[in-house]
Design a binder for these strands. Structure first.
Length: 202
DNA sequence: TAAAAGATCCGCT
DNA sequence: GCGGATCTTTTAA
């Protein structure tokens, strides 16, 4: 574990768009104890900005599940969607803002064997984690992580393990209806682990 | 209490 | 590239 260099809380307390962009290239790590380490490089994110963003769960009211969005930056927000799937977010900015960054895709680094076990039927390594819910399934992330701090239950985000030049691209967000025209999606250009979508061509 | 929508995935064409 | 599956959460009456 010594090789990891954890991001500080202050990283997540900055402006949401900057945080989303800067998360590209960072490493998402899940420590499963005796089962080993799962990790992946973040290659795709989306920003959801509180009360100014129609697509954000915090846009309408501060009730129910969205209350987690108003916690302090660095809190994990996991929610259930379409009856089957989880999405993993990290809350940003200061307490009461209602903003978060959705992790949409990662590039598997460690524990690929375990990820394959978590994703039965998937053959290509490129399909293990190229989607918000795929990533959660591969990492075994469920609602037990909702409303917990990073590092509290073995999930954390680290600085990159090596130097790398990132080609960052921006597009509209994917899969939403309201606020879909806003350019709040960030991804690493030409990375094969980014979700396949027509917006990748700009 | 009931109804509708949704930050998706997967298989089929 | 398109549409169905599936059920939690939210909102309204």
């Amino acid at each position: 574990m010594d090789k990891y260099e954890l991001l500080t809380d202050n990283f997540f307390k900055r402006e949401t768009l900057k945080t989303a962009k800067d998360l590209l290239g960072k490493v998402l790590v899940k420590n499963n104890g005796k089962k080993g380490i799962l990790s992946g490089k973040i290659v795709e994110t989306e920003a959801y900005i509180g009360e100014h963003d129609p697509a954000c769960h915090a846009f309408q009211k501060t009730s129910g599940r969205s209350s987690v969005l108003y916690e302090e930056g660095g809190t994990i927000y996991v929610y259930f969607i379409y009856g089957n799937y989880y999405c993993f977010n990290v809350v940003t900015e200061k307490k009461g803002t209602g903003s978060a960054v959705l992790i949409r895709a990662v590039e598997p680094l460690e524990g690929i064997g375990q990820m394959k076990l978590n994703r039965p039927g998937i053959k290509s390594i490129h399909d293990l984690t190229n989607g918000p819910s795929k990533m959660c399934m591969a990492f075994g992330i469920g609602r037990e992580f909702n409303n917990t701090r990073l590092s509290a239950k073995g999930i954390f985000i680290s600085e990159p393990l090596g130097e790398e030049k990132l080609k960052i691209a921006v597009s509209k967000r994917i899969g939403i209806v309201k606020g879909a025209e806003l350019p709040y999606r960030f991804f690493i250009k030409d990375n094969p682990y980014v979700t396949k979508h027509k917006f990748n061509k700009i």
